[in-house]
Protein backbone atom coordinates (compact mmCIF):
# COMPACT_ATOMS: atom_id res chain seq x y z
CA UNK A 1 0.00 0.00 0.00
CA UNK A 2 2.32 2.78 1.14
CA UNK A 3 5.87 3.14 -0.12
CA UNK A 4 7.33 2.10 3.25
CA UNK A 5 6.02 -1.43 3.17
CA UNK A 6 7.03 -1.72 -0.44
CA UNK A 7 10.65 -0.87 0.30
CA UNK A 8 10.79 -3.31 3.19
CA UNK A 9 9.69 -6.24 1.03
CA UNK A 10 13.27 -6.59 -0.19
CA UNK A 11 14.13 -7.89 3.27
CA UNK A 12 12.64 -11.37 3.49
CA UNK A 13 11.05 -11.63 6.90
CA UNK A 14 8.94 -14.68 7.57
CA UNK A 15 5.35 -13.52 7.90
CA UNK A 16 5.66 -10.84 5.22
CA UNK A 17 7.03 -13.29 2.69
CA UNK A 18 4.12 -15.56 3.42
CA UNK A 19 1.70 -12.71 2.84
CA UNK A 20 3.38 -11.95 -0.48
CA UNK A 21 3.08 -15.53 -1.67
CA UNK A 22 -0.59 -15.69 -0.97
CA UNK A 23 -1.34 -12.27 -2.44
CA UNK A 24 -1.76 -13.48 -6.05
CA UNK A 25 -3.99 -16.22 -4.75
CA UNK A 26 -6.09 -13.71 -2.84
CA UNK A 27 -6.30 -11.53 -5.91
CA UNK A 28 -7.23 -14.51 -8.04
CA UNK A 29 -9.95 -15.53 -5.66
CA UNK A 30 -11.21 -11.97 -5.47
CA UNK A 31 -11.00 -10.98 -9.12
CA UNK A 32 -10.56 -14.24 -11.05
CA UNK A 33 -14.13 -14.68 -12.19
CA UNK A 34 -14.76 -11.04 -12.93
CA UNK A 35 -11.64 -10.75 -15.07
CA UNK A 36 -12.33 -14.03 -16.84
CA UNK A 37 -15.83 -12.78 -17.68
CA UNK A 38 -14.39 -9.55 -19.08
CA UNK A 39 -11.64 -11.15 -21.09
CA UNK A 40 -13.59 -12.13 -24.25
CA UNK A 41 -15.23 -8.71 -24.52
CA UNK A 42 -11.93 -6.95 -23.90
CA UNK A 43 -10.27 -8.99 -26.65
CA UNK A 44 -13.11 -8.33 -29.10
CA UNK A 45 -13.20 -4.61 -28.33
CA UNK A 46 -9.46 -4.39 -28.73
CA UNK A 47 -9.38 -6.31 -31.98
CA UNK A 48 -12.46 -4.90 -33.71
CA UNK A 49 -12.81 -1.38 -32.32
CA UNK A 50 -9.62 -0.03 -30.82
CA UNK A 51 -7.35 -1.61 -33.40
CA UNK A 52 -9.17 -0.14 -36.42
CA UNK A 53 -9.41 3.22 -34.65
CA UNK A 54 -5.65 3.21 -34.11
CA UNK A 55 -4.96 1.83 -37.57
CA UNK A 56 -6.88 4.76 -39.03
CA UNK A 57 -4.19 7.12 -37.79
CA UNK A 58 -1.40 4.86 -39.05
CA UNK A 59 -2.93 4.22 -42.45
CA UNK A 60 -3.47 7.93 -42.99
CA UNK A 61 0.31 8.16 -43.50
CA UNK A 62 0.49 5.22 -45.88
CA UNK A 63 -0.36 4.54 -49.45
CA UNK A 64 -2.47 1.39 -49.30
CA UNK A 65 -1.74 -1.13 -51.98
CA UNK A 66 -3.26 -4.61 -51.75
CA UNK A 67 -0.90 -6.07 -54.33
CA UNK A 68 2.50 -4.53 -53.66
CA UNK A 69 2.12 -3.79 -49.98
CA UNK A 70 1.63 -0.51 -48.13
CA UNK A 71 4.17 2.27 -48.42
CA UNK A 72 4.85 5.09 -45.97
CA UNK A 73 4.18 8.37 -47.73
CA UNK A 74 4.26 10.89 -44.91
CA UNK A 75 1.74 13.66 -45.27
CA UNK A 76 0.92 12.94 -48.92
CA UNK A 77 -2.60 11.76 -48.14
CA UNK A 78 -3.33 14.92 -46.20
CA UNK A 79 -1.98 16.98 -49.10
CA UNK A 80 -4.32 15.11 -51.45
CA UNK A 81 -7.25 15.94 -49.19
CA UNK A 82 -6.38 19.63 -49.02
CA UNK A 83 -5.81 19.87 -52.76
CA UNK A 84 -9.04 18.12 -53.74
CA UNK A 85 -11.72 20.69 -54.68
CA UNK A 86 -14.38 18.02 -54.02
CA UNK A 87 -13.52 18.13 -50.32
CA UNK A 88 -14.65 21.71 -50.05
CA UNK A 89 -17.88 20.89 -51.88
CA UNK A 90 -18.40 17.88 -49.63
CA UNK A 91 -17.95 19.92 -46.44
CA UNK A 92 -20.36 22.54 -47.71
CA UNK A 93 -22.91 19.86 -48.64
CA UNK A 94 -22.55 18.16 -45.27
CA UNK A 95 -23.18 21.41 -43.41
CA UNK A 96 -26.14 22.15 -45.67
CA UNK A 97 -27.51 18.66 -45.05
CA UNK A 98 -27.11 19.04 -41.27
CA UNK A 99 -28.85 22.41 -41.43
CA UNK A 100 -31.74 21.00 -43.47
CA UNK A 101 -32.13 18.08 -41.07
CA UNK A 102 -32.44 20.56 -38.23
CA UNK A 103 -35.00 22.86 -39.82
CA UNK A 104 -37.01 20.20 -41.65
CA UNK A 105 -36.67 17.30 -39.28
CA UNK A 106 -35.73 18.13 -35.73
CA UNK A 107 -38.94 19.73 -34.46
CA UNK A 108 -41.30 17.23 -36.13
CA UNK A 109 -41.12 14.44 -33.52
CA UNK A 110 -41.49 16.93 -30.65
CA UNK A 111 -44.62 18.48 -32.12
CA UNK A 112 -46.22 15.14 -32.91
CA UNK A 113 -45.30 13.71 -29.51
CA UNK A 114 -47.10 16.57 -27.77
CA UNK A 115 -50.07 16.33 -30.14
CA UNK A 116 -50.42 12.56 -29.86
CA UNK A 117 -50.08 12.66 -26.07
CA UNK A 118 -53.32 14.65 -26.09
CA UNK A 119 -55.19 12.12 -28.19
CA UNK A 120 -57.04 9.88 -25.78
CA UNK A 121 -58.60 7.31 -28.06
CA UNK A 122 -56.60 5.08 -30.44
CA UNK A 123 -53.32 6.60 -29.31
CA UNK A 124 -51.73 3.23 -30.03
CA UNK A 125 -52.72 3.42 -33.70
CA UNK A 126 -50.89 6.72 -34.13
CA UNK A 127 -47.82 5.37 -32.40
CA UNK A 128 -47.73 2.29 -34.60
CA UNK A 129 -48.33 4.32 -37.76
CA UNK A 130 -45.55 6.75 -36.90
CA UNK A 131 -43.11 3.95 -36.17
CA UNK A 132 -44.06 1.85 -39.21
CA UNK A 133 -41.46 3.27 -41.67
CA UNK A 134 -38.72 2.39 -39.19
CA UNK A 135 -39.57 -1.25 -39.65
CA UNK A 136 -39.26 -1.24 -43.42
CA UNK A 137 -35.78 -2.10 -44.69
CA UNK A 138 -34.12 1.05 -46.04
CA UNK A 139 -33.37 -0.56 -49.39
CA UNK A 140 -37.11 -0.98 -49.93
CA UNK A 141 -37.57 2.69 -49.13
CA UNK A 142 -34.93 3.64 -51.67
CA UNK A 143 -36.84 1.78 -54.36
CA UNK A 144 -40.13 3.22 -53.20
CA UNK A 145 -39.02 6.84 -52.92
CA UNK A 146 -37.33 6.79 -56.28
CA UNK A 147 -40.75 6.10 -57.70
CA UNK A 148 -42.56 8.57 -55.44
CA UNK A 149 -40.11 11.32 -56.48
CA UNK A 150 -40.18 10.36 -60.15
CA UNK A 151 -41.02 13.18 -62.58
CA UNK A 152 -44.14 11.16 -63.45
CA UNK A 153 -44.60 9.78 -59.95
CA UNK A 154 -47.53 10.33 -57.58
CA UNK A 155 -46.14 13.42 -55.81
CA UNK A 156 -45.68 15.24 -59.11
CA UNK A 157 -49.07 13.99 -60.27
CA UNK A 158 -50.70 15.63 -57.24
CA UNK A 159 -48.72 18.83 -57.70
CA UNK A 160 -49.58 19.21 -61.38
CA UNK A 161 -53.23 18.35 -60.84
CA UNK A 162 -53.55 20.83 -57.95
CA UNK A 163 -51.50 23.75 -59.24
CA UNK A 164 -50.74 22.78 -62.81
CA UNK A 165 -47.34 23.64 -64.20
CA UNK A 166 -44.29 21.56 -64.81
CA UNK A 167 -43.87 19.51 -61.67
CA UNK A 168 -40.57 19.25 -59.83
CA UNK A 169 -37.55 17.09 -60.57
CA UNK A 170 -37.08 16.18 -56.94
CA UNK A 171 -33.96 14.13 -57.44
CA UNK A 172 -32.32 15.46 -60.58
CA UNK A 173 -32.67 19.16 -59.80
CA UNK A 174 -29.57 20.24 -57.87
CA UNK A 175 -31.49 22.69 -55.71
CA UNK A 176 -34.07 20.05 -54.73
CA UNK A 177 -32.06 16.83 -54.42
CA UNK A 178 -30.72 17.33 -50.88
CA UNK A 179 -34.07 18.64 -49.62
CA UNK A 180 -35.78 15.57 -51.08
CA UNK A 181 -33.37 13.27 -49.25
CA UNK A 182 -33.90 15.06 -45.96
CA UNK A 183 -37.64 14.91 -46.40
CA UNK A 184 -37.49 11.17 -47.06
CA UNK A 185 -35.30 10.54 -44.02
CA UNK A 186 -37.46 12.66 -41.76
CA UNK A 187 -40.47 10.69 -42.90
CA UNK A 188 -38.68 7.45 -42.21
CA UNK A 189 -37.01 8.23 -38.91
CA UNK A 190 -39.13 10.67 -36.94
CA UNK A 191 -41.22 7.85 -35.43
CA UNK A 192 -38.51 6.44 -33.21
CA UNK A 193 -37.61 9.88 -31.85
CA UNK A 194 -41.30 10.58 -31.37
CA UNK A 195 -41.74 7.51 -29.19
CA UNK A 196 -39.00 8.76 -26.88
CA UNK A 197 -40.48 12.25 -26.66
CA UNK A 198 -43.94 10.78 -26.17
CA UNK A 199 -42.78 8.73 -23.20
CA UNK A 200 -41.23 11.86 -21.71
CA UNK A 201 -44.35 13.96 -22.30
CA UNK A 202 -46.57 11.31 -20.73
CA UNK A 203 -44.36 11.12 -17.65
CA UNK A 204 -44.95 14.79 -16.77
CA UNK A 205 -47.14 14.88 -13.63
CA UNK A 206 -50.69 15.84 -14.50
CA UNK A 207 -51.22 18.03 -11.44
CA UNK A 208 -48.64 20.50 -12.73
CA UNK A 209 -51.03 21.31 -15.57
CA UNK A 210 -53.92 21.36 -13.12
CA UNK A 211 -52.10 23.86 -10.93
CA UNK A 212 -51.08 26.00 -13.90
CA UNK A 213 -54.63 26.05 -15.19
CA UNK A 214 -55.99 27.13 -11.82
CA UNK A 215 -53.42 29.92 -11.85
CA UNK A 216 -54.87 31.00 -15.18
CA UNK A 217 -52.27 29.69 -17.62
CA UNK A 218 -53.56 29.20 -21.17
CA UNK A 219 -52.86 26.14 -23.29
CA UNK A 220 -49.81 27.60 -25.04
CA UNK A 221 -48.47 28.87 -21.76
CA UNK A 222 -48.79 25.40 -20.27
CA UNK A 223 -46.87 23.93 -23.20
CA UNK A 224 -44.25 26.65 -23.05
CA UNK A 225 -43.72 26.71 -19.32
CA UNK A 226 -44.35 23.10 -18.34
CA UNK A 227 -44.10 20.66 -21.26
CA UNK A 228 -41.10 22.07 -23.10
CA UNK A 229 -38.97 22.74 -20.00
CA UNK A 230 -39.62 19.15 -18.87
CA UNK A 231 -38.34 17.90 -22.20
CA UNK A 232 -35.31 20.16 -22.20
CA UNK A 233 -32.57 17.68 -21.36
CA UNK A 234 -34.00 15.11 -23.78
CA UNK A 235 -34.24 17.70 -26.55
CA UNK A 236 -30.65 18.75 -25.93
CA UNK A 237 -29.41 15.16 -26.02
CA UNK A 238 -31.35 14.42 -29.20
CA UNK A 239 -29.96 17.58 -30.76
CA UNK A 240 -26.38 16.52 -30.10
CA UNK A 241 -27.10 12.98 -31.30
CA UNK A 242 -28.71 14.31 -34.46
CA UNK A 243 -25.78 16.61 -35.21
CA UNK A 244 -23.32 13.76 -34.68
CA UNK A 245 -25.45 11.41 -36.77
CA UNK A 246 -26.15 13.75 -39.67
CA UNK A 247 -22.52 14.82 -39.93
CA UNK A 248 -21.70 11.22 -40.86
CA UNK A 249 -24.49 10.63 -43.34
CA UNK A 250 -23.75 8.96 -46.66
CA UNK A 251 -26.02 5.97 -47.20
CA UNK A 252 -29.12 7.50 -48.73
CA UNK A 253 -26.97 9.96 -50.69
CA UNK A 254 -25.07 7.00 -52.09
CA UNK A 255 -28.04 4.74 -52.70
CA UNK A 256 -30.42 7.21 -54.28
CA UNK A 257 -28.14 9.61 -56.12
CA UNK A 258 -24.54 8.44 -55.83
CA UNK A 259 -23.62 11.96 -54.70
CA UNK A 260 -25.13 13.55 -57.82
CA UNK A 261 -26.60 15.44 -59.55
CA UNK A 262 -23.33 17.32 -60.14
CA UNK A 263 -22.05 16.55 -56.64
CA UNK A 264 -25.07 18.24 -55.04
CA UNK A 265 -25.47 15.42 -52.52
CA UNK A 266 -21.79 14.53 -52.12
CA UNK A 267 -21.32 14.58 -48.35
CA UNK A 268 -17.99 14.32 -46.58
CA UNK A 269 -18.62 10.74 -45.46
CA UNK A 270 -19.70 9.81 -48.97
CA UNK A 271 -16.46 11.23 -50.30
CA UNK A 272 -14.58 8.99 -47.84
CA UNK A 273 -16.49 6.02 -49.22
CA UNK A 274 -15.80 7.13 -52.77
CA UNK A 275 -12.08 7.49 -52.09
CA UNK A 276 -12.08 3.94 -50.79
CA UNK A 277 -14.31 2.29 -53.39
CA UNK A 278 -14.16 4.10 -56.73
CA UNK A 279 -10.89 6.02 -56.39
CA UNK A 280 -9.22 3.04 -54.67
CA UNK A 281 -7.19 5.31 -52.41
CA UNK A 282 -7.79 3.94 -48.92
CA UNK A 283 -4.91 5.92 -47.42
CA UNK A 284 -6.57 9.20 -48.31
CA UNK A 285 -9.90 7.81 -47.13
CA UNK A 286 -8.24 7.10 -43.76
CA UNK A 287 -6.76 10.57 -43.65
CA UNK A 288 -10.18 12.08 -44.26
CA UNK A 289 -11.47 9.91 -41.44
CA UNK A 290 -8.79 11.24 -39.10
CA UNK A 291 -9.63 14.84 -39.99
CA UNK A 292 -13.30 14.11 -39.39
CA UNK A 293 -12.43 12.50 -36.08
CA UNK A 294 -10.64 15.64 -34.95
CA UNK A 295 -13.63 17.83 -35.81
CA UNK A 296 -16.27 15.51 -34.42
CA UNK A 297 -14.17 14.87 -31.32
CA UNK A 298 -15.39 18.20 -29.97
CA UNK A 299 -19.00 17.14 -30.49
CA UNK A 300 -18.33 13.74 -29.00
CA UNK A 301 -16.98 15.38 -25.84
CA UNK A 302 -20.18 17.38 -25.63
CA UNK A 303 -22.22 14.21 -26.00
CA UNK A 304 -20.10 12.53 -23.35
CA UNK A 305 -20.68 15.35 -20.88
CA UNK A 306 -24.42 15.42 -21.55
CA UNK A 307 -24.63 11.68 -21.21
CA UNK A 308 -22.88 11.72 -17.86
CA UNK A 309 -25.25 14.39 -16.64
CA UNK A 310 -28.32 12.57 -17.97
CA UNK A 311 -27.08 9.33 -16.42
CA UNK A 312 -26.71 10.90 -12.99
CA UNK A 313 -30.14 12.45 -13.13
CA UNK A 314 -31.76 9.13 -14.09
Amino acid sequence: MNPLTKSTTSVPIGPQAAARRSRPQVLLRKYGWSLAFLLPAAAIFLLFLWLPIMKGFVYSFYSIDFVNGNKFTGLDNYRTVLADPDVRIAIKNTLYYMFLCLIIGFWVPIVFAIAISEIKRFQGVFRVAAYLPNVIPVVVLYGLWRWLYDPVGPINASITSLWGGEGISFLSDTSWSMISLVFMETWQQFGSAMLLYLAAVLSIPRDWYEAAEIDGAGIWQRIRHITLPSLRSLILLMLVLQIIGTSQAYQSQLALLDGGPMNATLTYALLIVKYATTRLDMGTASAMGVLMFLVLGVLAMLHFRLDRKGGDAA
Binding site: P52, Y250, G289
Partner: peptide, 11 residues
Protein backbone atom coordinates in the same frame (compact mmCIF):
# COMPACT_ATOMS: atom_id res chain seq x y z
CA UNK B 1 -18.12 8.30 -34.61
CA UNK B 2 -17.99 5.05 -36.61
CA UNK B 3 -17.70 6.73 -40.01
CA UNK B 4 -14.31 8.12 -39.02
CA UNK B 5 -12.88 4.60 -38.91
CA UNK B 6 -15.12 3.01 -41.54
CA UNK B 7 -12.33 2.33 -44.02
CA UNK B 8 -9.68 1.37 -41.42
CA UNK B 9 -12.26 -1.04 -40.03
CA UNK B 10 -12.56 -2.63 -43.45
CA UNK B 11 -8.77 -2.76 -43.80
Amino acid sequence: PPTTYLIPNFL
